[in-house]
């Protein structure tokens, strides 16, 4: 079972939820797809057993072969190529590594070279396998790192928890692509609800089963996120309180289920509900 945890707005509690779920689950795998600023490893502090570089293919031109026909310039939908003063310019950061320019070049003047854009680290924290994607500073997109992360060979019996990037763009879509279930984490702010609405629409378009976790809940205050869920018939699987104790555990880089009995029970409960939902989806849809 693969569970993607996403939120739209950052700082809502994706890492809190995915780290604790992975921790409470036996033989689990936690994958940090927030490659711009991965932070799950700060809690797990895994012993790194394997590091590998992630590269993408970037075109490079042989000026002796290029005859300036500009077919590559016209072809590129991302405008990563320009032809100025009889010379081809390649904008590496704009390039999406589709390889199309190589195909359309009649002179075979273009070839591909590898460009390093980040790293993947694999390790263990007690019973949890921790896989982290790290994008190099200055890179434009981490999509190919996420692709690599999710193509890792993971034992089928492992429960996989995918900590998604914030937002609802390409990198989030890539992160949830193969997920069996999406956990949407919400916080009780207007801004949070706005971005929650965006990922809610995203998982609907992608036809993914989903449920909500409401974080930072007060008992005695209005909760616009809860209201949104009720209005849209989104199943609320868990409400996590706005709690000093939890904040303290978190800010010390500790994992709540390993420190606190109550939170251990709460996430055990949430995991049970998630499993139930996934089982339900499997019987309904297949």
């Amino acid at each position: 079972m693969k569970i993607a945890v996403l939120s739209g707005k950052g700082g809502t509690g994706k890492t809190l939820v995915s780290v604790n779920l992975a921790c409470i689950s036996n033989d689990s795998c936690y994958i940090d797809c927030d490659v711009e600023e991965p932070n799950g490893h700060l809690f797990f502090k895994p012993e790194i057993e394997n590091r590998e570089k992630v590269t993408v293919k970037i075109p490079t031109v042989d000026f002796n072969l290029c005859n300036g026909c500009r077919k590559c310039v016209d072809f590129c939908k991302f405008n990563a190529l320009a032809y100025i003063n009889n010379k081809l310019f390649i904008f590496e950061k704009i390039c999406h590594s589709c390889g199309g320019c190589l195909i359309v070049c009649p002179q075979k003047a273009l070839t591909e070279k590898n460009k390093e854009i980040g790293e993947i680290q694999e390790g263990f924290s007690e019973n949890v396998k921790v896989i982290t994607g790290i994008m190099n500073i200055g890179e434009e997109t981490g999509v190919s790192i996420i692709k690599n992360l999710l193509s890792k060979n993971i034992d089928k019996k492992h429960h996989v928890f995918i900590d998604c990037p914030p937002g609802s763009g390409c990198s989030v879509m890539e992160s949830v692509k193969d997920a069996d279930y999406c956990l949407l984490v919400a916080e009780p702010t207007i801004f949070g609800v706005h971005n929650f609405n965006m990922i809610y629409n995203l998982v609907k378009i992608l036809n993914k089963p989903y449920g909500a976790v409401l974080n930072k809940c007060f008992n005695d205050r209005e909760n616009p996120a809860e209201e949104f869920c009720l209005n849209n018939n989104i199943k609320i699987l868990q409400k996590i309180p706005y709690d000093n104790e939890l904040a303290k555990i978190n800010s010390n880089g500790k994992i709540a289920v390993r420190e606190n009995e109550n939170y251990n029970k709460m996430f055990e409960q949430l995991l049970g509900k998630v499993k139930e939902e996934v089982r339900h989806e499997t019987t309904v849809n297949y």
Partner: peptide, 8 residues
């Protein structure tokens, strides 16, 4: 560029 979808 690269800001589609937004962050934070």
């Amino acid at each position: 560029h690269g800001h589609h979808g937004g962050r934070r």
